[in-house]
Amino acid sequence: MDNHYNIYICGVGGQGIIKTSTIIGEAAMNQGLEVVMSEIHGMSQRGGSVSTELKIGGYNSSIIPNNGADMLLSFEPIETIRGLDKVNSETKIVYNTHPIVPSSSNKPYPNVDEITKTLKENFKYVLPIDGTKLAIDAGSVLALNMVLLGAVTADDNFPLSKESVIEAMKNNLKPKFHDMNLKAIESGYNSIKG
């Protein structure tokens, strides 16, 4: 089972989730690994929940089985909770702590510190990061996906090198954003490693 690695990525439409996943997939391809990915289109621009699934290794199916994710990478606190079907006791749970409050729901938005506390009670690897702040520090809130991309590469079990992820990023995003994106990737990486 060497080099098998499943990442479930979730968040809200418009956060750059599909692009982030595509970059990881392309990096995996460039490293000669087998990779499949699943994404759901259609409602993504209309504020709905969005998720992608990436499976590195010899899988045919692009959907991660329940409890089958090595990493849950969430762009938004409550989307982390929605993604928990995919995790097991060894899953790394990395999430951005900045909430996006849905306008369409009448249920109150839970306290983010409570979410973190509850997750830590139940799982071994709970890694909250203030990705939105790190993105703004790197130059733009739009670099959030690069911060989280950097965070993925910091996991010791992640089978891809940071360099190949950066290479794939450069191949997918405009050169004028490369410096900002590199800064964001580094800060995401350090927030997990540090």
């Binding site: 809200v12 439409g13 409602m43 621009q45 209309r46 504020g47 709905g48 929940s49 409550i78 989307e79 909770i81 929605r82 928990l84 409050v101 849905p102 306008s103 369409s104 729901s105 009448n106 249920k107 109150p108 938005y109 839970p110 409570e114 979410i115 509850t118 997750l119 009670e121 139940n122």
Partner: peptide, 20 residues
């Protein structure tokens, strides 16, 4: 999971697509 997590899972607001 702990009862607090189960409650959190039940109580999270939905995020249906909406008119922009």
């Amino acid at each position: 999971y702990s009862s607090s997590l189960e409650k959190l899972q039940e109580d999270i607001p939905s995020r249906a697509p909406v008119l922009c």
